[in-house]
Design a binder for these strands. Structure first.
Lengths: 146, 146
DNA sequence: GTGCAATACTTAGCCTAGCTAACTTAAACT
DNA sequence: AGTTTAAGTTAGCTAGGCTAAGTATTGCAC
């Protein structure tokens, strides 16, 4: 078992391939889980960016990988649904801020609970050792994905 | 450190919460990675279901968590782009099958390479121990997500 | 073996979610 | 004061989702 640079590189490659496969699976799974929901996945995702306070349009667009006009329309629909309100930033009149309403927070929490309940159900089918392996990997996943 | 049933349940719950947070991150990340791509994420995803041979419309719709009419339209666009061809099943004239074209396979492979390269780049920033934790968790993730 | 229910899709019409190009307004920098 | 840059919005296009309704084929009942 040598540990040359070339060897490490091929390990990384194989790991990336496996991880890619798992990501495909989980994306498909999450799509199936959220199908037939009133608030869309994308809307929940935007609401999720607002938990720690108001955000600017530009920030939201960047975080979600969409252009500004797309975020404008997303937010407009969320406003129409009463889930967020638009606001202004004192000091720069160009900036628009977006903030959760109580109803928005409620919807967000409901979606969160749905996903967590789904995951918990699946997790409870695993063995203690399997869950321990996941717990050990979580900080790494965090580092990897942020 | 007791190991009662109630304790295990709360462990599962906390694990589900963390996993949920990581999943949110990775979904955002993947969206940012595939933004500005010619073939959409959803199209790549459907192409990915065809690697092991032709599939029926109904199967594809179920796998991707969409209704049949949605899959009809998705496949129509893929046909128009020359990435798949429609076929028939001998024995049941109602069934429509969908199969990759060489160009479809090519696009699929390109998308796969993009994602794998992206992941490999990030993975290579991790320590050997961190990657080992991921390797240990991969089979569990597979069990969890399929 | 005819009739009818179920199965497998498609079409039509509606909404959401993404894009670019072009516009408006406000800030910032000569 | 005048121009450039920054922050959003509007308009118009395409992709991706849904339901309702239609078509054709299969399979089953009798």
């Amino acid at each position: 078992m040598s540990d040359t640079a070339a060897n490490q590189e091929s390990n990384v490659r194989r790991l990336a391939e496996s991880l890619n496969a798992r990501l495909r699976e989980v994306v498909l799974l999450l799509r199936r889980v959220n199908a037939d929901q009133q608030v869309t996945n994308q809307q929940l995702s935007v609401l999720g960016s607002l938990t720690s306070g108001p955000r600017r349009m530009t920030e939201l667009a960047a975080e979600h990988g969409v252009r500004l006009p797309t975020m404008t329309v997303l937010v407009r629909r969320l406003v129409r649904s009463g889930l967020v309100v638009r606001g202004a930033l004192r000091g720069d009149a160009r900036v628009v801020t977006v903030e959760l309403t109580p109803q928005g927070a409620e919807q967000l929490e409901a979606g969160r609970e749905r996903r967590i309940a789904f995951l918990a159900e699946r997790l409870s089918a695993l063995s203690v050792d399997e869950r321990a392996a996941l717990v050990a990997a979580l900080p790494v996943l965090r580092k990897l994905f942020t």
